[in-house]
Design a protein around this nucleic acid. Structure first.
Lengths: 121, 121
DNA sequence: TCATATACCGAAAAATTATTCGGTATATGG
DNA sequence: CCATATACCGAATAATTTTTCGGTATATGA
């Protein structure tokens, strides 16, 4: 496990269970990246999300593999090669990602006006 | 604003915009609490979410008012009385909350088996 | 030979979020 | 008179997440 927690996550609450799987900074973007089902190498994922610190993508990918949202294949080659692919479980989250994407696009202007493009609120 | 940020949130990404509004620990639960449209007093909300630290509910409710997801009415009485009510903007997030609820219920057993009821992972 | 790319990891630091504690003020019920 | 409830806030602390830096090892191309 990437991060150890002292305060337990309440998985009895279905809302918090779902949230706990996608709420980290880049997990929803990673799912969106992998949604087409094509396996992707970590370096490609890094390039597609250039604002993410590479280390945190590694950590979050690892957690997503542990949670079963993504599968990982390691090819025993040198230089090393591996691929991440969205799983059936991960695909089942895509409708949620889609709704959030749609919502964000539809309401972008409100928050644009309110906070500007980037926001340190 | 409750917490000041040094690293700006990228509101240009519709996914991260939507996530930024609901990803804090109890915001999705608060929306679910208020979904029926009835105004609720803060003490009621606290009672419905007994696992939440009261202080953080105050802070997150305040942020949700700033973001326009919830409206607040203060009655100038003593002892003080106020009410929070979900806004039209907040209601527009309910389909997302619903999907997450449904997903969590449908996949509860997987994570139950995996991590047990509560999880310090 | 040397910079670059590959994938990954540990550890420290920084940033963010949550928790706990104590405080403001007033009314009600015992 | 005193505990309780109401709503809220500041500040210190704790917990969590993210960032940054440096390191492992090997192959390729300039």
């Amino acid at each position: 496990m990437a991060y150890e927690k002292k305060i337990p996550v309440d998985l009895d609450c279905p809302l918090r269970l779902t949230m706990s799987l996608i709420e980290s900074k880049w997990k929803s973007c990673i799912l969106d990246e992998l949604r087409n089902g094509e396996p992707q190498r970590p370096s490609e994922i890094h390039r597609c999300l250039p604002e993410a610190a590479p280390r945190v993508l590694d950590i979050q990918l690892k957690e997503m593999v542990e949670d079963g949202l993504v599968t990982k294949t390691i090819y025993p080659e040198l230089p090393p090669r591996s691929e991440y692919k969205i799983s059936a479980l991960g695909l089942s989250l895509i409708p949620i990602i889609d709704l959030m994407l749609k919502w964000g696009e539809e309401h972008f202007d409100i928050f644009e006006r309110k906070y500007g493009g980037k926001c340190g609120k």
